[in-house]
């Protein structure tokens, strides 16, 4: 049994102030690196947070709306990275093309994997998605044509032709607007998904399969659709990560990213729009600013994951809500 989050009623009643608040938040978000001193570390940390948060949203959709743990999303993350790297280094393609290719490859891979796992639930689903990621890792590691064990170096600056002008970015400062835009797009997409027919149906299938069946919903179709649309989100994050790091290797399959995705989602609580974003920000801040060394970081990441789920299954948001309720 999973706990259903009650939708917090929005405090603003009319749409206008709400739009204003959103715009102000977006503006503050955009200038955040400059507000934090405008140093290269501020830019690189925030760009990384934005990219990783987008990566987590792919897992978030599957975990929050299907109630399944996908251990295979590193596969889509890597597809994004490898697509950007290979197409830009070998064929000199621009950012739009590599992004479109990423989306196409991710959809194809997710469709295949989704179809294979259609009849599996719970841990078997997790195991099979994990198996897929392991096979893909072995392929990427051994196949020299796409990079092999050393990966691909020399990824040029991200080029996005915009009609007359061309955006070109290599440094963290240049990439920040792109990462920020990708994050906003993802947030908008998730917000739209939550209210969409698919989103509500998926939730119904997870919470009350009997009701869903009586309404004539085919749970398999819903599962497949949700899984498939989650893939390009994580994929696009990997796409931008390739340009940020200028190097792509088989390490994109590492469990570091997998655990990051899961922790960021459950830390704040499932089915909260900005949850994964805040979760990612907290985790990256800990690792970059308050790092206690690799072994301690592992202990912290692991205990956060375990403690949150054991003691506050609704995440930090649920905890906060409980506190505020007891006060008033």
């Amino acid at each position: 049994m999973t706990v259903i989050e009650s939708q917090t009623p929005s405090r603003t009643n009319s749409p206008l102030p709400r739009a204003v608040i959103t715009l102000v938040l977006i503006a503050v978000g955009f200038f955040l690196p400059r507000l934090l001193g405008g140093t290269s570390v501020a830019y690189s940390t925030l760009t990384t947070i934005a990219i990783f948060a987008v990566m987590c949203y792919g897992v978030d959709i599957v975990l929050s709306y299907l109630g399944e743990v996908s251990l295979g999303h590193t596969l889509f993350w890597a597809i994004g990275g490898y697509t950007a790297a290979n197409l830009s280094v070998k064929y000199g393609l621009d950012g739009w093309t590599t992004a479109l290719a990423t989306i196409a490859f991710c959809l194809a891979a997710a469709l295949f994997l989704g179809a294979v796992t259609l009849r599996t639930r719970e841990f078997v689903f997790s195991l099979v998605t994990y198996a897929a990621a392991v096979v893909a890792y072995e392929v990427a590691f051994n196949w020299d044509a796409i990079g092999g064990s050393d990966g691909i170096v020399g990824i040029a600056a991200l080029k996005l032709p915009l009609g007359v002008a061309t955006f070109s970015g290599a440094s963290q400062e240049d990439l920040w607007p792109v990462a920020f835009a990708l994050l906003l797009l993802t947030l908008a997409f998730i917000a739209r998904f939550r209210r969409s027919r698919l989103g509500t149906t998926a939730l119904m299938v997870q919470m009350n399969p009997a009701l869903a069946a009586s309404l004539g919903v085919d749970p398999r179709k819903v599962r497949l659709a949700v899984f498939v649309i989650s893939a390009p989100i994580t994929g696009l994050a990997g796409w931008l990560y390739a340009y940020q790091r200028a190097y792509v290797g088989p390490d994109m399959f590492e469990s570091y990213f997998l655990v990051m995705m899961l922790t960021a989602v459950v830390l704040i609580g499932r089915r909260i729009l900005v949850g994964p974003l805040i979760g990612t920000a907290l985790l990256i801040a800990q690792q970059n600013l308050l790092s206690l060394g690799g072994d301690w970081n592992k202990i912290i990441l692991g205990s956060v994951l375990a403690i949150v789920l054991i003691f506050w299954p609704t995440g930090l948001a649920g905890l906060f809500r409980r506190f505020s309720k007891s006060k008033f």
Binding site: F123, D295, K298, I310
Partner: peptide, 27 residues
Amino acid sequence: LVMTQNLTSLMIVTLGLGYVLQGGSAL
């Protein structure tokens, strides 16, 4: 989590505990 058969959370919890065991053993 076990008694409520919350298998999704259980999976993630054990994944996290594995991380803790690894870091702790290394230290």
